[in-house]
Design a protein around this nucleic acid. Structure first.
Length: 581
RNA sequence: GUGCUCGUAGCUCAACGGAUAGAGUGUCGGUCUCCGAAGCCGAAGGUUGGGGGUUCAAUUCCCCCCGAGCAUACCA
């Protein structure tokens, strides 16, 4: 990418200058001190390197250093100017046209690196209890996780997406008890959940169990008399399966595809949990206290030791989680990435501790902690967690659609609490960034359609031939003239917006790299908005379909390239790129 | 109390330690005989919560306050 190109050129120039003793006391170019950035003010140039950091090595003023380095730069087709400690580069025709060629040729693989340090990654996210519908917070992890998976795959990693089903423990019993009450209610019995608040906590009182109760009764209508009709264990399994299916369907509709659904119960049943405890014990990482068995996690950076087996002999949730992560490692993954809600942050240290205690590299585990989602309805924040106010993910999607839901869930940094404004996300207007971006794509498609469309003169009724033939349009991206963009560079009035657009397209490469390496998917949302801005500006000043055929081809090539990048980016986000809206 | 994540324009958010702190939205003002006006152009809007420190340079790093969310289980 151009950033790297200029960085390398500057380093070469520094070496030359050092050899000529032009950089004071500097004897070599220090690594990692300089970086290429985008100037704050675009009038300075397209890229800039700030050499001020070299001042303390050279013992010269930044201005002097910049001038010496610039004097040693030899880049064709590029304007260089020095302001203070900044060396600014303004790219010329050749560099920019190469870039458009690259996009036109590579299409959906544009910005995909040729070679990376490929890792086998297990990405775990959502991992909800099968005891109720997803709430909107799950939607954030689902959208972010699937986007991250798309991105890491595109970057070249081998990614497995996994959903850990928390289907073990007392909650499943609670689920069975709750379904039992719902069934009895459906059968006309006068029974209800306890009114006492403490006791009520032992039930799932949400109405979502009612349809499941109805379905159960319908399915077993001929076997009502059987003694196990209201067997809580059977009911629990039934409800669990139903909830899991609902969740899976929703995930699929939401554009999220897991490779593996991993059951916690299976982990117990297969003996892996016990085996893991045994292993920890043999390795001397456990001890007994107050009738319980503890894991010495404080030896590995956790703030205190944790219970692995309770005094009553049962396992804690953590025990299964340790076994689960051990299992992941034994399955041979180089890297485990988990997306967890911030409310689980206390867990990071202990799971990491367990990985280290078991003899694995704890750095293989990467936990992305996501801040929670607040719902804003009519300008008022609705705190989640209060059952009455709970809005489920399927309700949200129903309200605002999949595209908008995904985009809004992804567009903020994972570190910030997300305010999801339903009214705003719903509006199909300029207030909504999703539509703004999609509109840009639809507009690009529309131009391309019009370019090859025959028209009929409304006055005379005569056919007006298409501005350009299908064949010629196809040639723009297949077998095109290498100087196709030249006319754009010759027309002064529209050149600025075109070069801005081209540079923004170029930035896609840096963006993908940054986003993949830092697991920051929200940057894609920002980028796509910026690209749309530059495209709309370009469109406004540059008439694409014109009499001047060479200019038309040049601009159509640029429109095609923009459309390609927009589509690629939206695909990563799992947001549709409509050809018409 | 302690730990984690934060605090930036009216609102929602950006900004590898670097140039005049930027976008969107909202407000105000322009702009359609012509490829989609769901667009474009412009204006106003800031003591980056407060105070110290490190640095040639701090929204960014460190310390102390103030404020918010989350976590501080032999629950899952």
């Amino acid at each position: 990418m151009l950033k790297d190109f200029f960085g390398a050129e500057v380093e070469k120039a520094i070496e030359k200058a050092v050899n000529k003793n032009q950089l004071g006391q500097m004897t070599e170019c220090p690594k990692g001190v300089l970086s290429v950035e985008k100037p704050k003010n675009l009038e300075f140039g397209d890229f800039a390197v700030n050499v001020s950091a070299l001042a303390r090595f050279a013992k010269l003023s930044p201005t002097q250093i910049a001038q010496e380095i610039a004097a040693n730069l030899d880049i064709k087709d590029c304007e260089i100017n020095v302001i203070g400690g900044f060396i600014n580069f303004k790219t010329g025709f050749r560099l920019l046209k190469d870039l458009i060629e690259e996009i036109l040729e590579e299409k959906e693989t544009f910005a995909k690196p040729k070679k990376i340090n490929k890792e086998k990654i297990l990405l775990e996210y959502v991992s909800a209890n099968p005891t109720g519908p997803f709430h909107i917070g799950h939607g954030r992890w689902a959208a972010m996780g699937s986007t991250l998976a798309n991105l890491l795959k595109f970057w070249g990693h081998d990614v497995t997406q996994e959903f850990y089903i928390n289907d073990a423990g007392s909650q499943i019993d609670k689920l069975g008890q709750s379904l039992k009450i719902r069934i009895q209610q459906e059968l006309g019995e006068k029974i209800d959940f306890p009114t006492d608040e403490a006791e009520r906590k032992n039930y799932y009182t949400g109405e979502y169990l009612i349809p499941i109760a109805k379905k159960y009764i319908q399915e077993r209508r001929n076997r009502k008399a059987e003694t196990d009709f209201l067997n809580v264990k059977i009911l629990a399994d039934y409800a669990k399966n139903e909830m899991e299916n609902l969740q899976k369907t929703l995930l699929k509709d939401f554009g999220v595809s897991f490779d593996i659904f991993y059951s916690e119960q299976d982990l117990h049943d297969s003996g892996k949990v016990e085996a893991c405890v045994k292993k920890l014990k043999e390795m001397g990482k456990l001890y007994e206290k107050d009738g319980a068995i503890w894991f010495k996690s404080s030896d590995y950076g956790d703030e205190q030791d944790r219970v692995i087996k309770k005094a009553d002999g049962s396992n804690t949730y953590l025990t299964a989680d340790i076994a689960y992560h051990l299992d992941k490692l034994e399955r041979g993954y180089d890297r485990l990435i988990n997306i967890w809600g911030a409310d689980h942050h206390g867990y990071v240290a202990r799971v990491r501790a367990s990985i280290e205690a078991l003899g694995y590299d704890p750095n293989k585990l990467e936990v992305l902690l996501g801040q929670l989602v607040n719902l804003v309805i009519n300008g008022e924040e609705v705190r989640m967690g209060k059952r009455k106010n709970m809005v489920t993910l399927d309700e949200l999607i129903e309200e605002v659609g999949i595209d908008a839901t995904r985009f809004w869930m992804i567009m903020r940094n994972i570190d910030t609490t997300l305010d999801f404004d339903i009214e705003l996300a719903k509006t199909a207007s300029d207030e909504n960034p999703v539509f703004y971006v999609q509109y840009a794509h639809a507009r690009a498609c529309s131009i391309l359609r019009n370019a090859v469309a025959e028209k009929i003169d409304t006055q005379t009724g005569q056919k007006i031939p298409a501005p350009i033939s299908e064949k010629e349009l196809a040639e723009l991206s297949e077998n095109y003239d290498k100087n196709i963009l030249a006319p754009i560079f010759e027309e002064k009035e529209t050149f600025d917006s075109a070069r801005k657009l081209i540079l923004k397209l170029e930035e896609y490469k840096s963006l993908i790299k940054f986003s993949a390496e830092n697991r920051q998917v929200y940057t894609i949302c920002r980028y796509v908005q910026e690209l749309a801005v530059d495209f709309h500006s370009f469109y406004t000043v540059s008439r694409v379909i014109t009499e001047d055929k060479a200019m038309m081809k040049a601009r159509l090539a640029l429109v095609t390239a923009t459309k390609t990048v927009l589509k690629n980016a939206l695909d990563l986000l799992g947001v549709s790129a409509p050809e018409k809206m």
